[in-house]
């Protein structure tokens, strides 16, 4: 899923303080799972903002709504009439939702309430870690199911750098060395010989490098 974390209150306040009526919009998908922008966080943030503006003597209406998804026309349409009544929208969706909202409601100011961080997994309650950078050409088949693009600080394709120490990355003792994990896994799979196969230069044209990407599946298009 997409992992996000809420922006600091001061930054959010700085974005919306010149308005009087704000629609705070949550999303029921990824940001709910990572507890950054679901219905619960919308409620807590709305209360915090109301309190802030009350304490600062400013009249501010903050109304709440949480959509099934903000990356989908169908659900965004649900607030077409509603959004008209507000000066601006504060979206707690990921960057995709914020942009889709801005595209749909072209003359409505839309502000992000979260920082979109990465594609990751819930390791435990309150801990999310990165697993994928959406490079567009998956190499997990060759690396024991562990991704060096997202998990090696240098995205090395052919083994660890000289800085791998006790299974940890040179950038931090808190960070696992991806290549230690890959080697452990290749060992467990009895595939250590694979380590010596040279990985060819990666085609980054399917990554950010190739410009904005799209996926087209013609057989399902209407």
């Amino acid at each position: 899923m997409i992992v996000a974390e809420q922006k600091k209150l001061e930054e959010i306040v700085g974005q919306i303080q010149d308005f009087n009526k704000i629609l705070l919009v949550g999303c029921n998908e990824c940001v709910t799972v990572c507890e950054a922008g679901g219905k619960k966080e919308v409620g807590i943030l709305a209360s915090a903002l109301r309190m802030y503006f009350l304490n600062h003597g400013k009249e501010m209406t903050i109304d709440e709504v949480t959509l099934e998804r903000q990356c989908d026309h169908e659900y965004l349409e649900e607030i077409r009439d509603m959004q008209d009544k507000y000066d601006a929208v504060l979206s707690l969706a990921c960057g995709v939702g914020v942009q889709f909202m801005a595209e749909k409601y072209h003359d409505k100011p839309v502000y992000p309430g979260v920082n979109t961080c990465f594609l990751g997994a819930t390791e435990e309650r309150g801990l999310w870690t990165e697993r994928c950078q959406a490079c567009g050409s998956c190499i997990l088949a060759y690396t024991g199911g562990i991704c060096p693009v997202s998990r090696c600080a240098k995205r090395l394709m052919n083994g660890p750098c000289g800085g791998s120490t006790n299974g940890k990355c040179e950038i931090s003792k808190e960070t696992d060395c991806a290549w230690q994990l890959i080697v452990n896994r290749l060992k467990a799979l009895g595939r250590m010989d694979d380590y010596e196969k040279l990985m060819p230069l990666k085609d980054w044209s399917t990554d950010r490098a190739g410009g904005p990407r799209k996926v087209v599946k013609e057989d399902v298009q209407l």
């Binding site: 600080a153 240098k154 090395l156 052919n158 750098c161 800085g163 040179e170 060819p200 230069l201 980054w204």
Partner: peptide, 28 residues
């Protein structure tokens, strides 16, 4: 060489490239 990670240096907020790695540079 791969190179030390930029977080050790004076441009901690910079990007790193790693378009290719040191083995691929040898091949190149």
């Amino acid at each position: 060489l791969s190179g030390d990670h930029q977080s050790f240096g004076d441009c901690r907020q910079g990007q790193n490239v790693y378009d290719i790695d040191s083995m691929q540079l040898l091949q190149t």
